[in-house]
Design a binder for these strands. Structure first.
Lengths: 212, 212
DNA sequence: TAGATTGTTAATCGATTAACAATC
DNA sequence: TAGATTGTTAATCGATTAACAATC
């Protein structure tokens, strides 16, 4: 019930970039940074950076700037990176296996418990010690293990039915790689990775720059 | 030199979605559609759809709506999907192989000519009949074959140096999967697929919905 | 203290939505 | 013709940028 005034999605989508650059500064043992310096690094304006950060609190200090370590930590908290999310993946083909091998899961606090597929040739195999199970058992597995996040790397024909299973078994967040817009209840969050759209946009931009 | 007034990126990023839904309508043998019906399907407002399309010309007809086949074709043209782009990929690990297997290349008119890696265990293997070659030869290959698009699926440490090689050998578009912002001359277009940022955003949204 | 830089309000810019005349 | 729906202008909304007082 304690709704705060909502932060716009435009701001949210910049946070991971701030977090990433601050991590890099941290690695270089840089301890403080001004919004102006951050502007040079990230390409966002200093004004925008200050506005963005102030949606979440005053992390800086007048005359000094921002403490890199502190700001990095705070952004990690805001992004929810300290919490461990239990996840499963459905669709253990090429893309699914690549995603399962993805090293970035740890950084975001995601723990992949199992993969699922319907192909008998895949069932029983392991990717990084994570077993591929029969998709018929996915709902049971999710409920039993209190899985919170579902990843969809199936062909688009099966994506919606997988999403439906996720919703039924009480998953609250979906990372969707299938080139379709899932229909889910509004309390479920969906983050799409639409490779086809990304490629179309590259095609457009290429043409725009080179054929005018 | 014939610069038109530039269409905003916000519009461009909606085009692939229009294109996709129109393709689905086409499959269902639906021949005409109004901006209002398209609004129901896509979730964008009818007004926005008409505004978006009118950046590129008047494809509709008063009192009738839009011809699905015609609009689909026009959007394909706008997105540059009819042109064949020659592409290479550097970084033939898990992600690289998954991307090489990606079926969406054909739809966007991309032809993947070769993969490159520095790992001797990978060099010589084939993915979908496409050979993995030694990355030392990538510049020569690009020049010789007049490759236009480069795909980066290396770890982030190597991404910039691969991009530099691409630029040197005259590639004009880069599809970048490495979690870093590439520095390239401004006539080169870069489209990023930043999985880490996507995952962070999912984490944020999940937390926002479930821990308030 | 003087200089630097934030936090925040105000101004501007751009994108979305509404409205409606044109017209099929 | 009457009804429907576009193309387009005008109004609104939201996001970005500028400015500056507060303050470390």
């Amino acid at each position: 019930m304690e709704r705060e005034n909502k932060v716009s999605m435009a701001v949210i989508r910049r946070l991971p970039k701030y977090y990433r650059y601050l991590g890099e500064l941290l690695d270089k043992d840089i301890t403080r940074i001004s919004s102006h310096e951050l502007s040079n690094i990230t390409g966002f304006t200093a004004s925008q950076i200050r506005q963005d950060l102030n949606n979440f609190g005053g992390f800086g200090q007048q005359g000094y700037g921002y403490n890199v370590e502190e700001l990095h930590k705070q952004l990690g908290k805001i992004l929810g990176l300290e919490k461990i999310y239990k996840a499963v993946l459905v669709g253990a083909g090429n893309l699914g296996q690549a995603v399962a091998n993805y090293k970035g899961f740890e950084d975001a606090g995601f723990k992949l418990l199992a993969l699922f597929d319907k192909n008998p040739k895949l069932i029983g195999l392991k990717i990084r010690d994570i077993e591929i199970l029969d998709v018929d058992n996915v709902e049971e597995f999710i409920s039993k293990n209190e899985v919170e996040i579902g990843i969809i790397t199936t062909p688009k024909e099966h994506a919606q039915s997988v999403a439906d299973k996720f919703v039924k078994s009480n998953i609250k967040g979906i990372w969707n790689f299938a080139p379709t817009d899932l229909k889910v209840p509004e309390d479920i969050v969906v983050e799409n990775v639409h490779l086809n759209e990304s490629l179309f946009i590259l095609s457009y931009m290429y043409k725009e720059k080179n054929e005018k």
